[in-house]
Design a protein around this nucleic acid. Structure first.
Length: 276
DNA sequence: AACCAATACAACCGCAAATCC
DNA sequence: GGGATTTGCGGTTGTATTGGT
């Protein structure tokens, strides 16, 4: 175990601390230092590497930008779905949400939530925590996301299918077909588009290819105060979920069965822990 | 082409928890 | 036990980029 040792530290004023965007040179210094000495003890990194940055700044730069496993850029539809689901469980606990999204940082997820999700709430003129907005997410946004995920997988399979209802504990909720994505082209679509996140999908591996016992993680359950909503395609039999056929094993993605299985176990364990 | 608004994202700040002495 | 220091987290801000007019 690494033992902490406090070293006399100069004040920030003495160090003439730099702020603002990192330069390439600073990045390479930080990278070289961490490669040799490892992560952690960020104040030491700041002092010993010669960087005129605070330890906090070094830590943030490394964790949010320079870590080799960082996956920056477009957030896939599946990831969006997962963010919505995990946020419904844990609220603004971004680091916890990020733990379940390999390669994504809490900062990135937080930014996604603020720029996309809160924007939608604003457009709907309601609070992001209001029942109205949560219902909009449950009944419109998420089905729409699911539909888009399916559509992207169908583009390779050519097998049509439509989500027509959401089953809750208290019964089945029919979805107005006009509320589903690109299904009607009616005048209501203008309002709908404010609910649907137009982010393009760059990683279209289908959640529908997951084994039956895993699908709920990515596409199925949505936590709510009074129970759980499950999404299902009522016109399909259980095997109807496998829209994508044999799946896309060539896709470089975190969405492999092993990770989904691990995620489900994690969620189950944490929920169990919360119960006790 | 120029301007403006919206968007995306990097980075900072304050606070609390963890750790050390 | 308590103060000093470090670390981690969530909220917020600043700025570069993009898109529309």
């Amino acid at each position: 175990m690494d033992v902490y040792r406090y070293e006399s530290s100069r004040s920030e004023e003495e160090m003439d601390v730099r702020k603002g965007p990192w330069t390439e040179e600073e990045d390479s210094v930080l990278k070289a230092y961490v490669n040799i000495h490892g992560e952690g003890r960020w104040n030491s990194v700041a002092r010993l590497s010669g960087l005129r940055r605070t330890g906090k700044s070094c830590r943030l730069r490394w964790l949010n930008y320079m870590r080799p496993e960082i996956k920056r850029g477009n957030i896939s539809l599946e990831e969006q779905l997962l963010i919505l689901q995990l946020h419904s469980r844990w609220g603004n606990r971004w680091s916890k949400i990020a733990q379940h999204m390999p390669g994504r940082t809490d900062n990135e997820i937080k930014n996604y939530w603020r720029t996309r999700v809160q924007k939608q709430a604003k457009q709907l003129k309601c609070d992001v925590n209001s029942k109205q907005f949560k219902d909009a997410m449950r009944y419109v946004w998420i089905p729409r996301l699911i539909e888009r995920i399916r559509a992207s997988s169908q583009s390779t399979s050519g097998q049509p299918s439509t989500i027509t209802s959401i089953t809750t504990e208290s019964g089945s909720v029919q979805i107005d077909p006009s509320l589903l994505p690109e299904s009607s082209g009616t005048s209501s679509d203008s309002q709908l588009s404010s609910v649907s996140d137009p982010t393009d999908c760059y990683n279209p591996q289908s959640v529908w290819n997951y084994p039956n016992n895993l699908r709920n993680v990515a596409a199925g359950t949505w936590g709510r105060d009074d129970g759980v909503i499950e999404f299902q395609a009522t016109e399909e039999q259980s095997n109807g979920w496998s829209v994508g056929g044999g799946g896309d094993t060539s896709m470089e993605t975190v969405w492999n069965e092993e990770n989904i299985w691990f995620l489900q176990q994690q969620l189950h364990d944490e929920d169990s822990a919360l119960m006790t």
